[in-house]
Design a binder for these strands. Sequence first.
RNA 1: CGGGGCGUAGCUCAGCCUGGUAGAGUGCCUGCUUUGGGAGCAGGAUGUCGGAGGUUCGAAUCCUCUCGCCCCGACCA
Length: 469
Amino acid sequence: MRKAGFPVIFATGAGWPAGDVQLHEFSMRLSQYFMPTLKETPKEAEIVSHRLMLRAGMVRQASAGIYSWLPLGYRVLRKIEQIVREEQDAAGYQEVLMPTIQSADLWKQSGRYDDYGKEMLRIKDRHEREMLYGPTNEELITEIFRNGAKSYRDLPKGLYHIQWKFRDEVRPRFGVMRGREFLMKDAYSFDLDFEAGRRAYQKQFVAYLRTFARLGLKAIPMEADTGPIGGNLSHEFIVLAETGESEVFCDRNFLEHDVLGTAIDYGDSASVENVVNYFTSLYARTDEKHDQAAFEKAVPAQRRYTGRGIEVGHIFFFGTKYSEPLGALVTTPDDDAVPVQMGSYGIGVSRLVGGIIEACHDDHGIVWPEAVAPYKVGLVNLRAADADCTAACDKLYGQLAQAGVEVLYDDRDESAGAKFAAMDLIGLPWQLVVGPRGLENGVVELKRRGGDTERAELSPEAALARLAG
RNA sequence: CGGGGCGUAGCUCAGCCUGGUAGAGUGCCUGCUUUGGGAGCAGGAUGUCGGAGGUUCGAAUCCUCUCGCCCCGACCA
């Protein structure tokens, strides 16, 4: 969502109210939006994020663990994706796009065609060739690299893509948090030797800290098992949420450190390493690895934090695990041929939508962090049948859109209660409430969605200034 | 893949035990009245009762098979 240079489209065709300005990038009338909200919770949804996503009209289940994204949900997904993209770019990674469907050949070379078992969705094409819907992309990216880079002069390199993947989970659950089809960012680093590879790993470590902080989350890096991907340098990033699947023990210093407040120079490996060293020196473990005695020894009582969390990212350094069997060799300055050193770095983009809701909601609905909210402001017209009230709303709507403030305008002829409930449910950070009662006194009401119950009556001009500022 | 549960209106669910030809709330449509926290009254539309077979004069209901979905466990971004 761009902040400047936004497109302005004047509607002239049928279907739009005559003379109305349509600013698709920034604004939407609820009367025209496809946002099928539900008053009651569909029975298949157990956990809060799944319930809220269905009720808010963000997604619909297509089949077990597979979802369609409706406009509201897709907007959030794209915002998360964009933040992830910006931080990958900032860390010096280049975006590519690999296919969802892959040939089995490379997977046989790496030996994972058998290892992956039934989780891998196997397909045959019309020529009876063995294909698969990619559960991940190490093999393919290694082949791409192998064909395009031959020398140490081509290193280091970092590539990433954001693509749908499929893992045929035995038991998909928790809505988009544990779907079979999911959107994932995966990045891959290519370096000449272990030391350079370790630096690449550390860059991603910092990029992850920044990414999750920008998403409005507290994410804690924890030493992790390497799982079927293999290797020995690995961290999981766990987002704190009361409803998280695993119990987490950590030093409170994690929660208080502001990574975004620190300027990062990715070109300065010493400063990157400092950040990594700080975070890896603090105690942080999931219940599986938790050692109460070690916890008490490492962390003073007042700094001990116990909570729950959801895994949203995982980074690995795995050296030559794929470059060796797949023959991704580079020539060294001494004219030797050595397998390239690799790491891979995943973020579950679609999972994050659910993860953020798990971390950010209350009894009334979602409470979006501003960075990923589908719209910044919900403009509520309390009396759509009242000409003056509607005129005031229409004016504010146009002004907000022109100012580049993303606004969803509830212009429906519904009861006030229904509108408030819908706004709370979809969780936009600001509610701008306009009713005849306030207008008599020249004021509108501006409410902050969420904990701090910030709420003020002020003139429309002041509200506009506050939101556009 | 082991254990459990559920499929009846868009959504939540009743009816099933004890067979007689389908209901409620909510949502949707129309009209009127309302309007600051999911409004009121009146009228209206909506179902291959998940599917297939069987038993029966007759099946949402009983029997068999099957498909789908959910929960717990093992597994995982």
